[in-house]
């Protein structure tokens, strides 16, 4: 089934944060000036208890993004039907504004690796990934977003650039994209390429959400290596890419992803508010340009 809509963004074009249970008390104390919360779908696949009580609370008060990390869409093996059914029930229960997954695989031969693993980009893998995205959209009855990965290796078999692979994926399936700008920066540095060059060929029209996060620098002399750690503030270089992107595409729902060494709530909220300021700034500039075009 092909899901095409005018805009892939049902989340508000404001800043949001990845929800961490340790922040629940602080979040619940007040209405937060945030556009949305994002949760990892797999953490809410138990039957009840605190996770669902907290998610119900957030759902009633904020827009919600459900972010899957375990479907293994980039695997050559068939999708896990049980997992797809669990995602469908979760979507039916919470009606999130957005569901997203990754251009990656995480299971093989019945083993789950709990990491987002890379795939070669070829005609063959494109056909498989497109079929998996299609199957997922049909199962969930909604358009989904696919996130660009942070990668550390490439494959000698790859003969399609990642941006072209993703563009083609959106055209074949009607899916939207989740643009992770930290991943763009990390991958570009790791592969000796230009992050802006990547963005210039990225289909911004299909972007339904942006992710911002921090990385870990594991470089040694003459051997640059950045690791997508989600454990630090957003780097200045990534902020620059963010400014460039929303200048081009206008404001988009933007998530601060901070999953490791999680800071106190005020610091995380402050990171989100910095992104919010930039979105507001971009909105004004974008509106001015649209006005001029209308004249």
């Amino acid at each position: 089934m092909n899901y095409i809509s005018a805009s892939p963004a049902l989340l508000p074009a404001r800043a949001g944060v990845g929800f961490k249970p340790e922040h629940f008390g602080a979040i619940a104390a007040d209405q937060q000036p945030l556009g949305f919360f994002e949760v990892h779908a797999e953490n809410y696949m138990g039957a009840g208890g605190v996770p669902h009580a907290q998610l119900r609370f957030l759902r009633e008060r904020y827009a919600l993004s459900l972010h899957g990390v375990g479907l293994s869409i980039g695997s050559p093996e068939p999708l896990d039907r049980d997992h797809l059914a669990r995602l469908r029930r979760l979507c039916a229960l919470y009606q999130p504004e957005s569901f997203s997954e990754h251009l990656a695989w995480s299971s093989h031969g019945g083993v789950y690796f709990n990491d987002l693993l890379p795939l070669p980009y070829t005609e063959e893998t494109l056909a498989v990934v497109a079929a998996h995205v299609d199957e997922t959209q049909t199962a969930l009855g909604r358009r989904i977003l696919i996130e660009n990965p942070a990668t550390y290796v490439r494959f000698s078999q790859s003969d399609i650039p990642e941006t072209e692979f993703l563009t083609e994926l959106t055209q074949r399936t009607g899916c939207g994209l989740l643009l992770d700008l930290n991943n763009v920066f990390v991958s570009a540095r790791n592969h000796g390429e230009s992050a802006l060059g990547y963005l210039a060929s990225f289909p911004l029209i299909a972007v339904g959400e942006i992710h911002l996060a921090g990385f870990f620098d594991a470089s040694e002399a003459g051997a640059p290596l950045l690791i997508d750690s989600h454990g630090a503030q957003v780097a200045d270089e990534v902020i620059s890419l963010f400014e460039w992107t929303i200048e081009q595409a206008g404001p988009l729902p933007t998530l601060i992803e901070w999953d490791n060494d999680v800071p106190d709530w005020p610091l995380l909220l402050a990171e989100a508010m910095k992104a919010q300021d930039r979105l507001r700034h971009a909105e004004r500039g974008y509106a001015r340009r649209l006005d001029r075009r209308a004249l």
């Binding site: 050559p76 093996e77 093989h108 693993l117 070669p120 063959e124 893998t125």
Partner: peptide, 16 residues
């Protein structure tokens, strides 16, 4: 499923 993609994932998984 064929070829390259399965081979890659299988080798990758084994080494992981």
């Amino acid at each position: 499923m064929t070829s390259v993609m399965s081979g890659v994932a299988g080798d990758f998984a084994a080494a992981l």
